[in-house]
């Protein structure tokens, strides 16, 4: 087990190294880093100071070393636009994205599980087929397109829900959240549903195939032979069995949701890290871009690492294969 953990850990470090090289190369090797990394409005003395601090007068490999050692100390440079450390901006924007992502995952469970179970129970009915067609659409339509239709329908035509911004927020332990006020929640609803759409489709498929499989099991027939009501059989015996894979998959997809928030946040002008990234790219605020990418990549590598370790604990066969 220890050997396996070390193997996976070293692999993760290698991936992180490769990714940091790509990001570094992107920022430092293309174009003149002095132009890209230093605020053009800074005076000469400040510019020279920055060149020295970033080691831009040194050879490439040495520059990478300086870049990485700074990065490891949490220093990814200051934002040109806001003139504060890039990581700090990301930290202040992160709660908004997390709130959106968690609500989206919540929607995926609350809407996806019952719809999928219904489609599994009534496979041949019109509604059952309609749900599956809907999930295929949910898979193939671009997120931003659906977001646009949401805005057109619910904000412009019907005027029910606001189309942009975060609305009124309340602080919990110093972190502002939207979902506790009506105004905030009404702002949160459409973007969260938009972000959830893909995951809802995914959950519908998982829940449907799970339900169909579970229904064929002997223990369901045995439950019926015990004289249980249909409500109890579907609501307890079937539901509990399909929830395990659904929650596992959604847990894995959380990182994915955060990455896809880039699109939804842009459509709904939601002030999270995704919109920050797009704004920073168009403002050429490179330090923020670098900070975002490195942070997200690290997050993914961490999630993958943890999942691998968890799987190997749950399923010893994975471990054997890995150490061959």
């Amino acid at each position: 087990m220890l050997a396996f953990t070390i193997r996976r850990l070293s692999q993760s470090v290698i991936v992180l190294f490769v990714m940091s090289v790509i990001v570094f190369a992107g920022v430092f090797a293309i174009g003149n880093p002095v132009d890209i990394l230093i605020n053009p409005e800074a005076d000469i003395a400040e510019q020279e100071e920055t060149i020295r601090r970033l080691g831009l007068d040194k050879p490439m490999w040495a520059q990478y070393g300086v870049f990485m050692s700074n990065a490891l100390q949490g220093d990814l440079g200051n934002s040109f636009v806001h003139n504060i450390p890039a990581l700090e901006i990301i930290a202040t924007r992160l709660p908004a994205t997390l709130e959106l992502a968690f609500l989206a995952v919540g929607f995926a469970i609350i809407l996806g599980v019952p719809l999928g179970m219904y489609a599994g129970l009534k496979d041949d009915t019109f509604i059952g087929k309609a749900i599956m067609t809907g999930s295929i659409l949910g898979f193939s339509l671009p997120t931003f397109w659906v977001g646009l239709i949401f805005i057109m329908l619910f904000s412009v035509s019907l005027g029910w829900l606001p189309a942009s911004g975060r609305g009124e927020t309340v602080d919990i332990f110093g972190v502002p959240v939207s979902f506790l006020t009506w105004d905030g929640f009404s702002h949160l609803f459409l973007p969260a549903l938009n972000l959830a759409l893909f995951k809802i489709s995914l959950v519908i498929r998982l829940a449907r195939s799970g339900t169909k499989e579970v229904l064929l099991q002997d223990y369901i027939k045995f439950a019926r032979a015990k004289g249980l009501s249909n409500t109890r059989i579907v609501g307890v015996h079937v539901l509990k069995n399909i929830l395990i894979p659904v929650i596992t998959v959604l847990g894995l997809e959380l990182g994915n949701v955060i990455a896809f928030a880039v699109v939804t946040e842009t459509v709904f002008a939601w002030p999270g890290i995704g919109k920050l990234l797009i704004d920073s790219i168009s403002n050429l605020d490179r330090p923020v871009v670098v900070a975002y990418l490195l942070m997200t990549v690290t997050m993914f590598i961490l999630i993958n690492f943890v999942v691998d370790i968890l799987y190997s604990i749950l399923d010893p066969r994975v471990r054997l294969e890995g150490s061959k």
Binding site: I30, G255, V297, F300
Partner: peptide, 20 residues
């Protein structure tokens, strides 16, 4: 496998911001 463990949009974002 490694690449597929990252969402497509993230890979695309990294490349586009790196390549221009």
């Amino acid at each position: 496998d490694l690449q597929l463990s990252f969402p497509a949009i993230l890979i695309a974002l990294i490349l586009v911001s790196a390549l221009g």
